[in-house]
């Protein structure tokens, strides 16, 4: 709960103001959704995602766009987690590099981040006519977000 508020504040106050090269903004807040432990049910994951997206939308004047994209990712997250995560049965497994292995974790995060950004920018532009520009934007922003997530993971590993 606390980290949810933390991620939202970080996103609203700091990251939304970053416009690297004029159009690249990281959307780090979905990292919170990606880190939810497997004990959280699929429904709860989606409710979390929807509420986070909604709060962010209210602050960014993009009512619905973030909520849509984040709900979409929260829906996919449990399936991706089962696919990329460790196959042996843990009751309460929190996604991390330790548990997944570096390769699998990167893939897990990268796919979901890319899907989120793509959905978000498509909904935001609301047209396919600038599709290649939107795609480019989504890819660039995803790379930026991914780098930030890696930084977070690095510091977490260091602290242990």
């Amino acid at each position: 709960m606390l980290s949810c508020v933390g991620f939202l504040l970080l996103q609203i106050l700091l990251l939304n103001n970053i416009k690297f090269l004029g159009f690249i903004t990281p959307y780090l807040y979905i990292y919170f959704i990606l880190l939810l432990p497997s004990s959280v049910s699929k429904e709860m994951t989606m409710v979390w995602g929807f509420l986070m997206g909604l709060v962010l939308d209210i602050f960014c004047d993009t009512l619905g766009c973030n909520a849509f994209a984040t709900t979409f990712v929260s829906f996919l997250k449990p399936y991706f987690q089962n696919f990329f995560g460790p196959k042996d049965d843990f009751d309460d497994m929190k996604p991390s590099i330790d548990r997944f292995g570096f390769n699998m974790f990167i893939q897990y995060v990268a796919y979901l981040v890319l899907i989120h950004h793509l959905v978000f920018f498509l909904i935001e532009a609301f047209t396919f006519s600038m599709f290649w520009y939107t795609l480019l934007k989504a890819v660039c922003c995803s790379i930026f977000t991914l780098l930030l997530i890696l930084c977070f993971e690095y510091f977490k590993a260091k602290r242990r």
């Binding site: 989606m46 409710v47 929807f50 997206g53 939308d57 993009t62 009512l63 619905g64 766009c65 909520a67 849509f68 709900t71 979409f72 909904i123 609301f126």
Partner: peptide, 15 residues
């Protein structure tokens, strides 16, 4: 949830 989001988008954003 996606329907709610979509409804919000179409109803609240002029663009």
């Amino acid at each position: 949830l996606e329907l709610i989001s979509f409804w919000l988008i179409v109803n609240n954003n002029q663009f």
